[in-house]
Design a protein around this nucleic acid. Structure first.
Length: 412
RNA sequence: UCCGCAGUAGCUCAGCGGUAGAGCAGUUCCCUGUUAAGGAAUUGGUCGUAGGUUCGAUCCCUACCUGCGGAG
């Protein structure tokens, strides 16, 4: 069985939104869908059963950079791929997986390291970018050239090199159903001419990724066909985004990722510029995004799948999503709040009070991270499921507006 | 009863003749292809009580109170 994508229903209200199904050798993904991040072949603080059963995640995304360094992609391959290694399945049936190419680490361990630079910037920060000078070579853990990236391991400091070819070889060992071309993710604070250079480099790397993938054939780990997605870059610039989208659209990828940096205000626009160009019949993944509002904007503008560390990261630090906005369980007012974490009785986290989970956070208990992570992942997973239903029933816009009205009513 | 030691932020403790600091706790904030169970900000004190010395006492002196240890 191989890879394909069916569009089940195009939105009757907005041009780009659609509900679909991604078929993979390890099961289907109903889209739009939130893909849970398990960087090192584990979703932090959760068992695979938590993720499949209590969250209901359809797929997990792991990272090439991290698994290459630890435990090493050859070991992952000996397990039959990272899905098997981490026991990612439900009722003994395999579930789909993604791997990211390691391109993002070029940014997060390179230009961004030590600067507190996020890939999401405000336009204000971008206008002040000249105050951010080039990081000195001693501080950076990654150095980019046209052929690839040389970097130092965050595990032990040892020196390594990624090229598009090496990323493909590693990802064939990791064995995900869907994996990404090796790209360069730029800082939102990088000047435009650098971002222009980065999209042509990403284009060259995309062609090399595709060629290497074809040469390698099926996954070494699973013996199955893998789908390769090309990545569109271009920062917050409309012309660069469109140029990059045209680059990728002309290549024979199975689907597309939209990566890189956006301004908070322009994310929906950037996604629309790109998705109006990308071929309609191929799935589109928005890399590393999702706050609830961003997910709705992405779906409206033609995104099929998302992944994001935010739900689990903020969960580990005490924050959870609610339909009335994000709350911080460290706040004193939750000490005696007897209401359930989730109002929905069908959710696993309905059984726990805010007071209890707040206590777990204050006591520094591991279960706090577990419960909050289950909750936040369930929230985003459900958000995507609900969006899907409303696209099919033709009521997406009202659903989106109602959600946003309620979510932002109380704060921000 | 005597001797010694100690009383400084909610807790554990620094400090010093020029009207006080830290860590933790507390109170908040931040996190978007995870170097993240991470990071940041910030509120708290008539320095045990009462006198005295001094230009000036949390610091030196006296008494008292409280706690701990020792002697009896």
């Amino acid at each position: 069985m191989s890879f394909s994508f069916d569009i089940e229903k195009k939105s009757t209200e907005v041009n780009l939104a659609r509900a679909g199904v991604i078929h993979t050798p390890h099961g289907d993904i109903q889209t739009p869908a939130f893909i849970t991040v398990g960087t090192k072949a584990t979703v932090k603080s959760l068992t695979p059963e938590d993720v499949s059963k209590y969250v209901g995640s359809q797929a997990v995304l792991a990272n090439t950079y991290h698994l290459y360094l630890q435990p090493g992609d050859e070991i992952v391959s000996k397990h039959g791929g990272f899905a098997k290694m981490m026991n990612w399945q439900k009722d003994n049936k395999p579930l789909p997986t993604f791997t990211d190419s390691g391109g993002f680490q070029v940014f997060s361990l390179g230009q961004a390291l030590g600067h507190g630079v996020s890939k999401i910037a405000t336009s204000e920060e971008i206008s002040k970018r000249e105050t951010i000078e080039e990081t000195s070579n001693h501080e950076k853990l990654a150095h980019i050239d046209d052929d690839g990236v040389t970097f130092n391991s965050v595990v032990d400091g040892s020196k390594h090199r990624f090229t598009p070819e090496i990323s493909m070889q590693i990802q064939h060992n990791l064995g995900a159903d869907i994996f990404f071309a090796f790209d360069e993710c730029t800082s939102p604070l990088a000047p435009k001419d650098y971002q222009r250079k980065a999209i042509s480099r990403t284009y060259e790397w995309a062609k090399r990724s595709l060629a290497e993938h074809k040469k390698l054939g099926v996954s070494k780990a699973t013996g199955e066909v893998q789908a390769l997605f090309g990545i569109v870059q271009g920062g917050a610039y409309e012309d660069l985004r469109k140029e990059s989208a045209h680059h990728m659209a002309e290549l024979d990828f199975d689907g597309y990722g939209i990566g890189g940096s956006f301004t908070k205000e322009d994310m929906g626009n950037a996604v629309r510029w790109v998705n109006e160009i990308l071929p309609e019949n191929k799935p589109r993944h928005l890399l590393g995004i999702g706050e609830p509002i961003d997910i709705l904007l992405g779906i409206e503008n033609g995104i099929d799948t998302f992944d994001c560390v935010s739900p689990t990261r903020i969960a580990r630090n005490g924050a959870i999503y609610t339909y009335d906005g994000r709350i911080n369980l460290h706040n004193a007012k939750f000490r005696e709040d007897m209401s359930p974490l989730s109002d929905d009785a069908s959710w696993y986290t309905h059984k726990y009070t805010k007071s209890y989970v707040a206590h777990l956070f204050k006591a520094d208990e591991m279960l706090a991270s577990t419960l909050a992570s289950i909750h936040n992942l369930k929230f985003l997973t459900t958000l995507c499921e609900d969006a899907r239903k409303h696209i099919i029933s033709g009521t997406f816009l009202k659903f989106k507006e109602d959600f946003i009205k309620r979510y932002y009513k109380t704060g921000e």
